[in-house]
């Protein structure tokens, strides 16, 4: 972001928004927008509570398990879809549909089939995250330099070496981009899954705060969830930048 020809750090633009928020809150324009400062205070009061840490633990667990499955399925299956033409054709259409489909609409069906519990949330996370990983991995492997593959074969690469020493590394920039996007979707998955179930983790807290009209706490939780998603995706972006030096020189 630039202002008057000067680059201003993203931090300062956030500060500006928070000030605007504070002013709107103090002006009491709307009951659902409390001043920013009281949201921060509410944040500090809810974080140390046992209820909060319990909710976070449950949410983190669902998120981690769902993401782990998404990575374990998404990357290998994406590689296979790129390498086995028939598989790519059969699954490609579905992946393309689901990558842009409103997955939230499926959660009530999951609840009906699997029940109201943690596994439903885990599957929601998985479904939110997996398709973008699949798609990006597939694209990355498909775009992998053919002459590098030929080179490796020529120098006697076995089939697994072709994957571990050439193809996966060729596709790493795309795979990481997919992972970064999937992390954000995964966080959405946890929140939406738990919100719809309404008796678990962060979703339960959201439900509680909005029912009792605790807007300060509600917004504090929103900010905490945002910060978590942002921090995770930045961590992946950091990894991405480390492989960028060769991605840009391909």
């Amino acid at each position: 972001m630039t202002l008057l020809g000067r680059r201003i750090p993203i931090f300062f633009s956030l500060v500006v928004w928070f000030i605007v928020w504070e002013i709107i809150g103090r002006a009491k324009l709307s009951t659902i927008v409390p001043p920013f400062s009281s949201v921060v205070i509410a944040g500090f009061t809810i974080v140390p509570t046992e209820k909060f840490s319990k909710a976070v633990m449950i949410s983190l667990r669902s998120f981690a398990v769902g993401m782990a499955f998404a990575l374990l399925v998404g990357i290998p299956l994406g590689v296979l879809m790129a390498r086995v033409a028939s598989l790519g054709k059969v699954l490609g259409m579905w992946v393309n549909i689901f990558v842009s489909a409103p997955i939230s609409a499926l959660v009530p069906i999951l609840m009906a089939v699997i029940g109201i519990g943690e596994s439903t949330v885990v599957i929601t996370v998985f479904l939110f995250a997996v398709f973008v990983i699949l798609l990006d991995t597939q694209v990355g492997i498909k775009q992998a330099d053919r002459s590098l593959v030929e080179m490796a074969r020529c120098f006697g690469a076995r089939r697994y070496q072709l994957y571990t020493k050439v193809l996966i590394l060729c596709a790493l920039p795309e795979i990481l981009a997919g992972v970064r996007l999937s992390v954000i979707r995964g966080v959405k998955g946890v929140v939406i899954g738990q919100l719809l179930i309404a008796i678990l983790g962060v979703g339960e807290l959201f439900e509680l705060y909005s029912q009792h009209f605790l807007m300060e706490e509600f917004w504090a939780l929103v900010i905490i969830v945002f910060m978590f998603a942002f921090a995770l995706s930045e961590a992946v972006a950091l990894l991405e930048r480390r492989v960028e030096y060769y991605a840009s020189s391909r």
Binding site: G156, L169, R250
Partner: peptide, 19 residues
């Protein structure tokens, strides 16, 4: 019936691993 250790190839586009 495939590549072999007695043959090595120098590629026109170098085919070097960028990483």
């Amino acid at each position: 019936d495939g590549p072999g250790p007695e043959r090595a190839f120098v590629f026109q586009d170098f085919a070097l691993l960028p990483w």
